[in-house]
């Protein structure tokens, strides 16, 4: 029983990785067209269906990281980003901050400030308290 479940999980993970690869291509195209906000939206989409699989999480983070780093106009980005993405973006910002990488942290902090202004402390609270759907 446990074996078959493990198999399904692995199968699932493969499927997700494939989807993430497709996503990466799409994001690269969007970035080339100077559409960083569209790229970020694409990156954040579907992250709700996250598995507990660490490999998938890392793959997803690489995609989101790529999109986050391409953002120049933070205010403009947040204006055109749907509020439903705020919570998930906050989660990725904290993941970015946890890397300790200087440019990543700089960018994440910059977005974090603006995002907190918009989405409030509630958004941070939802990141802190959610121990199930981590990114």
């Amino acid at each position: 029983m446990a074996g078959s479940e493990g198999f399904v999980e692995a199968d699932n993970a493969e499927a997700i990785i494939t989807r993430i690869e497709h996503k990466t291509l799409k994001i690269e195209t969007l970035l080339k067209q100077f559409k960083p906000v569209e790229a970020l939206k694409t990156a954040l989409e579907g992250t709700y269906a996250m598995t507990s699989d660490e490999r998938c999480k890392s793959a997803h983070w690489i995609v989101v990281h790529r999109a986050i780093m391409a953002i120049k106009d933070v205010d403009g980005m947040l204006s055109s980003l749907d509020p439903e993405y705020y919570d998930i973006l906050m989660k990725y910002l904290y993941r970015g901050l946890s890397t300790g990488d200087r440019p990543t942290c700089d960018q994440c902090l910059r977005i974090h400030e603006k995002l907190t202004e918009r989405a409030g402390h509630g958004c941070i609270l939802r990141f802190l308290t959610d121990t199930v759907n981590t990114v």
């Binding site: 919570d87 989405a119 409030g120 402390h121 509630g122 958004c123 609270l125 939802r126 802190l128 308290t129 959610d130």
Partner: peptide
Amino acid sequence: HNSMIYFVDDVGPSPLAQNVVFRDL
């Protein structure tokens, strides 16, 4: 405690739940 409030109608076998996110503590 995650800055959300939940409303549940038809409490029973098939409850209808809504959650409302708010921006503060």
